[in-house]
Design a protein around this nucleic acid. Sequence first.
DNA 1: TTTTGAGTTGTTCGA
DNA 2: GTCGAACAACTCAAA
Length: 482
Amino acid sequence: MAEKPIIVYFRNDLRLGDHPALSAAVASGRPVLPLFIADDNAPGPWRRGGASRWWLHHSLAALGADLEQSGTPLTIRRGDTAQEIVRVAHDVGADTVHMSRCYEPWSRQLEHSLKDQLSADGITLNRFAGHLLSEPDLIATKTGGPYKVYTPFWRQMSTLAIRRPVPAPCKIRPTLNVPDGPTLDELDLRPKKPDWAHSFRPIWQPGERSARHRLNAFLESDIARYHERRDRPDLPATSLLSPHLAFGEISPAHCWHAAQMHAARNPAGANGAEVFMKELAWREFSYHLLFHFEDLPTQPYRPEFQHFPWAEDGAESVVTAWQRGQTGYPIVDAGMRQLWTTGWMHNRVRMITASFLIKDLLIPWQRGEAWFWDTLVDADLASNAASWQWVAGSGADAAPYFRIFNPVTQGRKFDPDGAYIRRYVPELSSLPTKHIHAPWLAPAEVLAASGIRLGVTYPVPIVEHAGARARALAAYATLKAN
DNA sequence: TTTTGAGTTGTTCGA
DNA sequence: GTCGAACAACTCAAA
């Protein structure tokens, strides 16, 4: 008599290690059925973007291979989540479904309706933690409310005992006689024509194994000086773990404990490790905000920003210039082109490009948020929304209104040799460092010697920063008036 | 209840 | 060239 299998429904938790939902299923001793459902239940604008779909394809391939090695294939389905789970459960006689909790508003809705629909069919749904260091509803101020400022949130979080990672199961009992579903290729997640992802391949290797290599490499080298160098886009200084975390190929708890252990063993590198852990806590804080303010991705957290006087004229052409890295400000263009060609942008440059769109161009932050959502391989609803609002000043714990990045100053400070610009804006590569952050100020003969014709080979700045800054300050001043 | 201290990431200007 | 102050006022969190 066959035992009833347990379905493990995978979403943004594409790993075997530190996967409580999977481990609990394996520990039951029953057969397991790992299941992925291609079902974009996210509302329109939040469908997975192109870059994320590319990543998802390769991540699923890696997960499938790892599962095979542990003794079971990954089953794929397409369609409505609840219907497909019920169908698969009936096909194989499963009465239990395990899944990791997700925190996007639509995912929370799905989990609730799923629980009801499944229980109507006599199927139990068990949800497990795993995507975060702690559950967003477990952290609260003394009065029981959500935190709205990062520092006190961090103070409390850093005192919590973070869940210990559970090891990957060595052997998974497969479920037999599972009807065929679509293959991974049939999900059609990769770009066809044009195949823009060719420039992603040399940089990124999706999958759990690669995520762990990335973390270990980071611990061995760059974490020790992370606190000093993490703002330098020209240096290999950051962990590059963001897409792996976004798809759950590695758990934040795993990263947290690894960093903590590293700090304990290498006191010299403890500062870097702590700053890295604080970055993990920023991710956590973003989820905390999203959990308590579901409209965070679309509505300004501070309501007075509903009335912000955004620019109307010529908005489309400047947005296009920004997206294509044709603003005439080299550090901005380098960042936007890094995003376009690699699906990722350095954190410091994300702030610079975001500040430019919002404050120099006076374009609503939601436009930038949508573009990042479509083009980032690490697109994450909570981090993306919280960060764009933070730059706009409309969010929790927001930047003061007068904090307007000067793209030239920022470039000189954080890309002092211009190496980052030269990498992503090759038409400027011959320009001497002295002029590389502001080519329009370079003498004509220097431009000529560098093969640059402003307005032809590289754009003249689409706005004049000093004037744009004054305009932004005036726009922000209107918020105070009422 | 009221008070107090603090709040990721900046720029500019004038001494 | 360097350095400190100004740039608002407000909200948050805890005592």
